[in-house]
Design a protein around this nucleic acid. Sequence first.
DNA 1: CATGAATGAGGGTTCATTCAT
DNA 2: GATGAATGAACCCTCATTCAT
Lengths: 220, 220, 220, 220
Amino acid sequence: MSPRPPPVRRAGRDAAPAWRRRAEARPEEILEAALQEFETRGFDAARMEDIAARARLSKAGVYLYFNSKEALLRELIVSRVAPVAMAAERLAAAGQADPGQALRMVYELASERLSDPHVFAVPRLVLSISNRFPEIADLYRTEVINRMRTAIGSLVAAGAQTGVFRVVPVDVAMRLIAGPVLFEMIKRHAFRDPPPDDLKEQMTLQFDLLMIALAPERPT
Amino acid sequence: MSPRPPPVRRAGRDAAPAWRRRAEARPEEILEAALQEFETRGFDAARMEDIAARARLSKAGVYLYFNSKEALLRELIVSRVAPVAMAAERLAAAGQADPGQALRMVYELASERLSDPHVFAVPRLVLSISNRFPEIADLYRTEVINRMRTAIGSLVAAGAQTGVFRVVPVDVAMRLIAGPVLFEMIKRHAFRDPPPDDLKEQMTLQFDLLMIALAPERPT
Amino acid sequence: MSPRPPPVRRAGRDAAPAWRRRAEARPEEILEAALQEFETRGFDAARMEDIAARARLSKAGVYLYFNSKEALLRELIVSRVAPVAMAAERLAAAGQADPGQALRMVYELASERLSDPHVFAVPRLVLSISNRFPEIADLYRTEVINRMRTAIGSLVAAGAQTGVFRVVPVDVAMRLIAGPVLFEMIKRHAFRDPPPDDLKEQMTLQFDLLMIALAPERPT
Amino acid sequence: MSPRPPPVRRAGRDAAPAWRRRAEARPEEILEAALQEFETRGFDAARMEDIAARARLSKAGVYLYFNSKEALLRELIVSRVAPVAMAAERLAAAGQADPGQALRMVYELASERLSDPHVFAVPRLVLSISNRFPEIADLYRTEVINRMRTAIGSLVAAGAQTGVFRVVPVDVAMRLIAGPVLFEMIKRHAFRDPPPDDLKEQMTLQFDLLMIALAPERPT
DNA sequence: CATGAATGAGGGTTCATTCAT
DNA sequence: GATGAATGAACCCTCATTCAT
């Protein structure tokens, strides 16, 4: 679930010789290299050798820090995507007073982060190998999907309480909010459909429309 | 783009012996076998040998009908998913008079077809290898995404004309309609999140909410 | 336990084209190559690539006939050594009437066969990896050791009945008969101690002495 | 042939601090660790890292004392098995007056020492790699086999002189005495054939029978 | 039309060994 | 005296693809 600890470092001396910094930076360097290779070739076609080379390490060197290719992907989930979901949770927690506004922030956070091909690459990878590595699928569901559901769910529930939202199942809310964002990202990154020039406006409009959809029923 | 023609049909002998049927059914059998293997293992991990075995053919036999593994995937797009998009186009063409109802039908068609793991598997595959095979991504965009956009776009435009929909960019409409459906399918098929018991109702509710979002602005 | 069957051969046609013979001969060719490589380098240090090359096959080709390196060794036991033990059993069965003579034949059979470095190589291999592959150790015990014990045991028992041998536990008899032979072979093949010029006479003397040892106690 | 001297013992400082003991104990600790790993995994499959860990040392640390994996094995022969052969030589030297009794002691010494899996492991290792490292085979032959031959040979010769033994080539005697012992050990340690309950008696009987075999010919 | 046989090109992973610190 | 870090060289095994039959 986490990389091998960068081989034991005695706390002892305070001096930090060059190679020490190296060792400490290595996991991150390797993850970044792995992400880039995964992004362009996919999980299976990415070669450990290329990942190593990109991290300026020998092939064997990678295994000093990560046990396997799969472990790299696992760690990418934890380090690259889970934080986004956690940020969403925090936004939700902090925004119970104004759920509409908080929801917008969550929406924008997700849009913005997933716009980065590096970030989008991770769910894309998970998607493509989840059948073969159920454990990874579970990790992603736990660390990302469920957190997003919690965040959105709590906001919609809060809004329903105060009358700014109608009462809808959390899954419906999540699909409505997250679905269109995900769709755009897939279309753009995976199917090479260039975003329209006015994407920003479109995304705003889109959210506004969703707010209308979620608004409480008007009394007839 | 299409399978090799079922090997040389000797002109001359006109009699159509029993095995002919067989030969003509082969491409379809192979595609089905390929789809099943791709579905469970993904594109890279699927083995041509297993595909062949599933189609009750020798490994080499597959190559009589398809040039490569990639060709199998290409043909799956054309044969398994493009028809759905074309059906959507037809629904749209036939439903210009009642765009709301037609849109619902398109929405339901998409939901229903993507519920089938066999169908969902194809976009999922494309997603996972589109970077390595841009040509396949383009094929999918052309054959599927653009058709869906056309279908939805024409309906929303028609509705805007007659005042049942507000005026929105086609991409926004597409994201709103297709995004939530896609999201559900990913969550279900890829992350093994079982659908809620009341999924049907949720999907209906979801569409109704989207109709509210797309409804023309009420005059204040 | 046995090699993959040389890929299915339809009984149909009687003509036997060149490559068919090939396929049928392959397992044996590969085993012989494997034995030679194992013999010179040992099990671990032997490389599948070298085995393949020696059998004039590509590396991958070997795997058409044998599932793994381990399988090669397993099959070597069955094909190279077990037959010796089975021959000993047959000699024993046929020689119940004259156990002394039969025992001598068994002794000479074992000496003669183990003199061949190719044959000796197999038990040697088993010995060196038996801890890591208990299944192979079991196979050897079952197919070779136990058979030899049975053969020797039945002869000694028969001899005891008719009074030409004294009564001794079968394991003692086996150790006395087989131990010296094995010792010689190990010393010669493994520790590079060249056999003395008069080995033949020594082996004969050795057996004669053992017969004295096994002779019934002389009444004082 | 021998371990690197325990790293530079700075002449000068004569005080012998506690860690000195440590350093001096190291080679032995490492050898013991190596033996244990070799014993369970065999020479090739044993990992220097595991040996080091077992000796509570870093991987690199082992190389301060031994030049290579091979060197470990070499030193094990010298330290673990050669002493047994030397003890046998001493027994032989001391027992010229009563060769029968001395031979029994040699026999029992060998049986007893080889019963220890740790001791048995060494010849077993040599056996498995002697082809690749002829030098090691030679070492073993020189240090162990030849010494045993000398010991047994001198006793049998002495016995022949005094008429308690018949005249037999030394190699025959060695095979007769050592072969059955070796056989038992192989069967037990390598093939996990548990020793019979009455092994002790069997081994005694075995030796007694061998004494009969070696007894001078009775005048007819 | 079909296949049995074969292979070239890796792919992930391991490990003995080295060296700067 | 000791080690953390690093690596080069393999090694077993796999698989898409080809081709003679």
